[in-house]
């Protein structure tokens, strides 16, 4: 093939066979690139849940279940007080405090009295019930059914002296900050709540 003298040899024009080989090579690379981007095509959301009051338990669960409905692959990494949301017993008894929250109809001095958190929590629970707002437990069960991955930070489990068996079935334990970072790096949406 290289003995062909029909074109100027000084230009080193590639032969038909060389071009065909090059095209094959590029097509292979293109296929590999599209296969990679197909893998990445699934949308991902990563939430870090750090709060464990009744009001702050809702946003991560509502967003997680809704994103799952949109087809997102969702992970929620629960750390510090956020761990209580996944704790089967404690999640049913999350509290709401009016102290430090000027939007609550209770002055801080009154809210700070013994037993007042119990009262504000009961009022909120009644409103949740009256409005047929989903309970925390319902949102967790629904999210799990929809494939949301709930992760319980191992360091906080030990810090709080919780047992891995205390959490809802399906909760991932034995994970740390590196797992969360990896999820955030891969995600299209990252939220700290």
């Amino acid at each position: 093939m290289s003995t062909d003298t029909s074109s100027g040899s000084a230009e080193e024009t590639p032969s038909r066979a060389e071009l065909a080989a090059r095209v094959d090579e590029l097509e292979e690379q293109l296929a590999a690139v599209s296969a990679d981007s197909d893998d990445d095509d699934g949308k991902k959301m990563s939430i870090i849940a750090t709060k464990g009051t009744l009001d702050m338990a809702y946003p991560p669960l509502i967003l997680a279940s809704t994103a799952a409905a949109f087809g997102y692959e969702v992970t929620v990494f629960h750390t510090f007080w956020g761990l209580d949301i996944l704790h089967e017993e404690r999640s049913r008894d999350l509290q709401l405090s009016s102290v430090g929250n000027p939007n609550m109809p209770v002055p801080n001095v009154v809210g700070a009295l013994p037993g007042m958190d119990r009262v504000t929590t009961k009022l909120m629970e009644k409103r949740i019930d009256d409005n047929e707002t989903a309970t925390i437990e319902e949102l967790i069960e629904t999210s799990l059914e929809m494939g949301v991955e709930f992760q319980a930070c191992q360091m906080t489990i030990e810090l709080m002296d919780y047992d891995e068996a205390d959490f809802y079935d399906g909760v991932t334990t034995g994970v740390g900050a590196a797992t969360a970072i990896q999820d955030m790096a891969d995600a299209d949406i990252q939220l700290l709540i």
Partner: peptide
């Protein structure tokens, strides 16, 4: 009917 956010969307998806 009666259910509020996010349940209408979540249940529709299911």
């Amino acid at each position: 009917k009666g259910a509020s956010c996010p349940m209408p969307v979540v249940k529709t998806k299911s």
